[in-house]
Design a protein around this nucleic acid. Sequence first.
DNA 1: GGGGTCATGTAATAGGTTACATGATTCT
DNA 2: AGAATCATGTAACCTATTACATGACCCC
Lengths: 208, 208
Amino acid sequence: MAERRKVGNLLALAVLSYLTQRPMHPYELSRTLREHGDARSIKFNHGSLYMVVGQLAKAGFIAEQETTREGQRPERTVYALTDSGRHELRDWMRDLVEYPQHEYPHFVAALSLIGALPPSEVVKLLRRRLDRLAEQCVEIRAIIDDTLGKGVPGLFVVEEEYRLTLLEAESSFVERFVEQIIHPKTGWGRIWAEFHGEPTPTDERQQS
Amino acid sequence: MAERRKVGNLLALAVLSYLTQRPMHPYELSRTLREHGDARSIKFNHGSLYMVVGQLAKAGFIAEQETTREGQRPERTVYALTDSGRHELRDWMRDLVEYPQHEYPHFVAALSLIGALPPSEVVKLLRRRLDRLAEQCVEIRAIIDDTLGKGVPGLFVVEEEYRLTLLEAESSFVERFVEQIIHPKTGWGRIWAEFHGEPTPTDERQQS
DNA sequence: GGGGTCATGTAATAGGTTACATGATTCT
DNA sequence: AGAATCATGTAACCTATTACATGACCCC
């Protein structure tokens, strides 16, 4: 489970995966990744790609196959997957699917220090957050519908469905949280506000 | 929104937050962070802490206040929050609470490349994942109950409640996904399996 | 009083991001 | 023909993680 991989960057996983189809040179990988929209799921960045390709080659997961040159353009080095690379890809995928990872989303960090802001402000900010979350939901819906509309099978948008699930869960969490804060009798707002030297808040449920 | 901060590591946020209480030296911060359990929400690591403190000092958000030494132990440099640091803390928190960030969880990456594994295996792995997710849920529940049991107000475990919400959402997503794959008539399993050269799967719903 | 572990920090290394460079192609 | 953009890669810089170092305290 989550062993220390020789190459840990998830971009490498995408590279391995694309190379199962055919050998490619880095720029082609780059283009394909971006076009295929994988950059939404895996942090992508031109510089890192070359780094990762280098690491994979050093680790023996891919191998330089040929070096061609067209006209005066820089040389393009074509890489192919090795057996060891094919194995690494499967093994890594199994790992990722079976074992949930402890991660550190930004919002978790913010929540853990939320007491640093006064509750009246937090409520305002959370309501704005709800709007943004809703926007993101429609955006993702659009991507999904658009892709399915082109006849692509649903399996290829499953990661977007997942995101959507999480966004919806977050939204309803935030709604509940806001209620907890502003609930006039049992809410946390009172002591929290006092701690910040704010006037005891009135019931704000009707606002914006 | 999400401007380029002088110091971007979320550990720095925790440091700023702790220093609002009183000036401390790095090791004290380190201990406090670990004891207070913030390491579950913010990636923490001894080395990074010193780095971050250095960065914060260079950026003027904290300032060296005094340097003491007890016996022959190394010097301890005590840092205090500056006005600019206090401002940065609030500003950063507002940012994090209001704006959802696009993040890259490992599972999303795996889903986006899920076709690399054959469906029969994916189903097996997803079922195992469900078990692990359930374990994590009870673990978090325990932390929450334990903390509340000590009389700590609920506000201080809100980040764990959030995690829990996300875990539950993920669980139900995975359950639905498994159903999608194995559904005998409308499921994705059939073509997917063929693509991998596997025998067309039978209805596996009764298995483990 | 020798073997752990706590307290405290620095240095070495590896990893990732940004900036730079340069010929080719296309647009106006 | 000059400007913008694509194609392709390297180098410089920052950030983060691991490893190392050393005196104090505690236990048996």
